[in-house]
Amino acid sequence: MNPAETPQFNIHAGNEFTWNVKPILHEIRHALQRFLDNGETSIIDLRSIPLAPGEEESIIETLGRGEVQARLDVLGASEIYETKYTGVWLVTHYNDSDSIVSRFIEVTEMPDVLKSQREDVVHALNALVTELGTDKT
């Protein structure tokens, strides 16, 4: 089929399709305010909100990218970066086949999952001790 004849299906409608884009951005604004005022952190599950095709992208585009980004290798990959609005983070979890399994916007100084976890540190210490064998100097 000639590309010119290809029917154009506009199922990806404009930004304000479900009218949920703006409210989510406002929710982030309020969360940031609360974080500043009393240190309260927030998490928004992007998959729990009905969004039209393109709307999630639109939110992410608006938030942009900031200074910090990290890639985790935990049960498949996870991508975490701070948006251009400091304190607002985008956390995307992928599975083995690189499909998104969950996606959150976190308003915090650093998402918990980035921090070294105490159990893992204990595990690490044990591993290091094992590695070093009996050499206790």
Binding site: I43, I44, D45, R47, S48, L72, V74, L75, S78, V91, H93, V101, S102, F104, D112, V113, Q117, R118, E119, D120, H123
Partner: peptide, 23 residues
Amino acid sequence: GVSRRSFMKFCATTASMMALPPA
């Protein structure tokens, strides 16, 4: 050998899956 980080990811995804609030 699943790390705590992995477990946290699992929990976050499970919450999302069960349509429970991230809190």
